[in-house]
């Protein structure tokens, strides 16, 4: 994992009441500047009601730490992952080539994203089409900020003693070997981390990957997200932590289906950090 230490800290403009503006790459370019880090928001991060909250919390952290980042704003477009996984290589490659042209045009070197599917495709599949970047998933990125002492957690004891279970996203874990970073973050929160029966490389899918998110499931005797939610609930958690927009949707739906949404919250790592730090 590359060091993110070199990403400088500089004070981002901020109003006295704490209000701040999220800079776009185009705005920086107009000023003759380039971002050190591109935050790739992703379609779920931009449009999904629930995941917008994660996006907002993640930029709050970026702002707090003072990293010179920017987003693409309205210029961002789907990576093409759902199309590719659904077998449509044409739509995927057209999206990828357009995106790569733009990213290379802006001289983007480093990307962070809160979506494991975007992360996987940037890291593994864009290089073959001419898009080579240093790519981070927000879980490892946040964990490194904590490691380097730039981001503090758990002073308030917000999560002390609370039971949290972590659901592995297939595209992070099995796909790219990221199992420990999210768990280290949860441990830093002083939470009581409890594992599900199937965890890490044996983790069970939430049911949304491979473009399942965008279609009805085939006939069967159960939904995959229910199977996984039941397993998560067996750990008696107060929080089910996720690091993927699709896992979040599937498990949130599962918890609702089980009428447990009062007792059990499904939350992203970035949200937990913001809550712990009162950012």
């Amino acid at each position: 994992m590359e060091e993110i230490e070199r990403l400088s800290e500089e004070n981002q403009p901020q109003a006295t009441n704490g209000a701040f503006h999220v800079p776009t790459v185009a705005e920086l370019k107009a000023k003759g500047e380039e971002p050190e880090l591109l935050f790739w928001v992703g379609c779920a991060g931009a449009f999904d009601d629930r995941y917008q909250k994660v996006t907002r919390d993640f930029v709050k952290i970026l702002h707090k730490v003072g990293i010179k980042y920017a987003v693409l704003g309205t210029e961002e477009s789907c990576t093409g992952d759902p199309a590719k996984r659904a077998g449509n290589e044409f739509v995927y490659q057209m999206q990828a080539m357009k995106n790569i042209e733009m990213l290379n045009g802006y001289n983007i070197k480093t990307i962070v994203t809160a979506c494991p599917h975007c992360f996987n495709i940037f890291k593994n599949e864009y290089p073959e089409l001419g898009g080579t970047y240093e790519v981070h998933h927000h879980s490892t990125f946040l964990q490194q900020l904590i490691n380097e002492g730039r981001l503090k957690v758990a002073d308030g004891g917000e999560f002390k003693g609370k039971t949290i279970t972590f659901h592995d996203s297939c595209y992070l874990g099995r796909g790219n070997g990221i199992y420990e970073a999210p768990r280290k973050i949860l441990e830093a929160l002083d939470a009581n981390l409890v594992e599900m029966r199937r965890n890490r490389s044996k983790g069970l899918c939430c049911g949304a990957g491979g473009a399942q998110m965008f279609k009805d499931a085939e006939k069967g005797d159960k939904e995959v997200n229910i199977e996984r939610t039941e397993e998560a609930l067996e750990t008696n958690p107060s929080i089910i932590a996720t690091a993927c927009p699709f896992c979040m949707t599937m498990l949130t739906d599962g918890v609702k289906d089980k009428n447990k949404e009062q007792e059990v919250k499904v939350m992203d790592l970035a949200e937990l950090i913001v809550k712990a730090n009162n950012i």
């Binding site: 999220v22 907002r56 199309a83």
Partner: peptide, 19 residues
């Protein structure tokens, strides 16, 4: 976008942010 949203709305999430 895989959903039917307008690209113009991609920055809606960034409105009214504050620390």
């Amino acid at each position: 976008s895989p959903w039917q949203f307008s690209p113009d709305d991609r920055m809606k999430w960034a409105e009214g942010l504050s620390l």
